[in-house]
Amino acid sequence: MRNLDLMLSLFRWSFYGFMCIFAVDVTVSLFTAFGVFDIIAWLLIVFGGIFAIIGALGSLRFPDFWSRLHAASITDSGGVILLLMGMGMHSGWNLVTFKLFLIGAFLFITGPTSTHAVANAALVSGLKPPRQLRADLERDDD
């Protein structure tokens, strides 16, 4: 029994060692085949996609409108910044980078504006904030 445990731990640690060697090998071959900026661009694009999914999931699952507003602004800030920066670093310096910068600047101006317009219209039309927040606001007024 003790020999079995020893053997299993031996297998386990050799597996970890092989995985470490494999990870180092993949990383070294990636950095030799491509530049550092390519790797950074891919990381930015992958994390931008993940941020887009996080924002959409929050916008689907959150309980009321005001928290859904917060979740939708994650995509408008994090996803847009990361994806556009990743695409710009992947393309290099040319006209495409200028177009990406133009799209980013425009989304940066219009995203908060339209979010504020939606929130203001909802508040004016009488959609109340949730009960706990309302109680906190009334207690601050007193």
């Binding site: 887009a52 916008s59 859904r68 939708a72 995509t75 799209i103 995203g111 939606v118």
Partner: peptide
């Protein structure tokens, strides 16, 4: 209605990307 407007806006941003 405002959930739908917010979703439309978010869908447009996703479409741009």
């Amino acid at each position: 209605l405002y959930d739908r407007v917010l979703s439309t806006n978010s869908f447009g941003t996703h479409t741009v990307l």
